[in-house]
Design a protein around this nucleic acid. Structure first.
Length: 385
DNA sequence: TCTGGGGTCCTAGGACCC
DNA sequence: TCTGGGGTCCTAGGACCC
């Protein structure tokens, strides 16, 4: 999808068409998505909103329409599944399709692309771009090249010519750090990478990453659609929530309350998904942006808000006092497994009804009457930071 | 008023077990 | 005066993606 959050957010506001629009924000937020008018002025997603506004003072800034984005995403993915069942959803606005089985019906890969683009445009009133290639990685880069509102096809015999002039940083999986490291090795283009002996790459980047990048540089990555490092596994290896405070704080009560709010959020999501977590992980970012994580594995998997919170608080307390203030806290559940596979440890003398029942009752109330229907008393009257 | 929030995967050291 | 090899789990951090 092209500038997905921005496109959806302004879809029903024709007066904004052709104007630079930034979606995202909050007091200390970043740009979630920007229209191409804003991008032409140098705005990029993930850029601090303050900087984006400086680059583009006349931009309209809007909060993201998350519900509508979600619904649009689902509708688009459904269009894709009608082309082929082999769909690998990468994110809310991106997917891979293996269209080998659809060629007889459509005639060509390009015809598939135009079919999808036409349907998305007609039914959702937004544009998308399609990259076609023999591997996921090549298709991914072709898709980037196709933006906005276009199609780029890289046939197998053209892959090497397509890849090799690119900057190494354009490869999917090479971020800023790896790009810097490659630069220091004197490797700037994908061709440089491709012509570096494999053992040398493995030494420099580790055996796995080295081999992976070498394959990407020759377009020979063999993962099939649906078998990528992300997809192909049961979704949901972790559930997390984090929040940057409006102002850095050293008030333990404020931090503790926020940990409760986050714990309640992730535990509720786990319960809704029928999952329990072996491990609770705490993330803390200080005012100077140093970030650390602490985690604890529990004796028994849990989906209980109070247990998650108690663990998060214990991890936080174990950090001790710091000189700097806290900018962000986060809570994440890991080691998830289906709750029905977890047999409850019976404790002699335990109450017959405990937090598990309270959580479930609260979940039912929330699902009937809304998020504010019931919750921890200590969160009453507090606004999200 | 620099730097969000949701994730996945990899690495590396230490503990522990056989 | 000597300490292997293989494996798993736990913890912490880092890189990357959208």
């Amino acid at each position: 999808m092209d500038a997905f959050f921005a496109s959806v957010t302004i879809r029903d506001r024709p007066e904004l068409r052709g104007r630079p629009v930034l979606v995202g924000g909050g007091l200390r937020g970043v740009v979630l998505s920007a229209t191409y008018e804003a991008r032409r002025r140098g705005v990029r997603s993930a850029m601090p909103m303050s900087r984006a506004r400086r680059l583009c003072p006349d931009a309209v800034v809007l909060p993201a329409a998350f519900d509508e984005v979600e619904a649009t995403s689902a509708a688009v993915m459904e269009i894709l599944r009608q082309v082929t069942p082999v769909v690998e959803v990468v994110s809310v606005d991106e997917a891979f399709l293996d269209v080998a089985g659809a060629l007889r019906r459509f005639g060509s890969t390009t015809a598939v692309a135009e079919h999808v683009r036409a349907r998305v445009h007609d039914e959702q009133r937004i544009t998308c771009s399609v990259g076609i290639g023999p591997t996921r990685s090549v298709a991914k880069l072709a898709g980037r090249r196709a933006k906005p509102d276009g199609v780029v096809r890289v046939p197998p015999e053209a892959v090497v010519d397509f890849l090799h002039p690119l900057d190494v940083g354009e490869l999917w999986g090479v971020g800023e750090r790896t790009r810097d490291r490659l630069r220091r090795l004197g490797l700037r283009t994908v061709a440089d990478l491709a012509h570096t002996p494999l053992p040398e790459l493995r030494r420099a980047l580790g055996p796995r990453a080295g081999a992976h990048l070498h394959a990407l540089a020759w377009g020979t990555d063999s993962a099939r659609v649906g078998e990528g490092p992300v997809a192909g596994r049961p979704a949901g290896r972790s559930i997390g929530a984090e929040e940057t405070f409006g102002h850095d704080t050293d008030d333990h009560e404020v931090v503790g309350r926020e940990l409760l709010r986050l714990s309640a959020t992730v535990a509720r999501r786990a319960r809704a998904a029928g999952l329990a977590a072996r491990c609770v992980s705490l993330k803390v970012r200080y005012a100077d942006f140093t970030t650390l994580t602490r985690s604890r594995t529990l004796a028994d998997p849990t989906d209980v808000t109070a247990t998650v919170h108690a663990t998060a608080v214990a991890l936080y307390a174990a950090l001790g006092a710091r000189r700097t203030r806290v900018r962000l806290v986060g809570v994440r559940l890991e080691g998830l497994r289906p709750r029905r596979e977890v047999h409850e440890q019976l404790v002699l003398g335990a109450r017959e009804h405990g937090w598990t029942d309270a959580d479930r009752a609260a979940d039912r109330a929330v699902s009937r009457f809304g998020r504010d229907a019931v919750g921890p008393a200590s969160l009453l009257g507090t606004r999200r930071p």
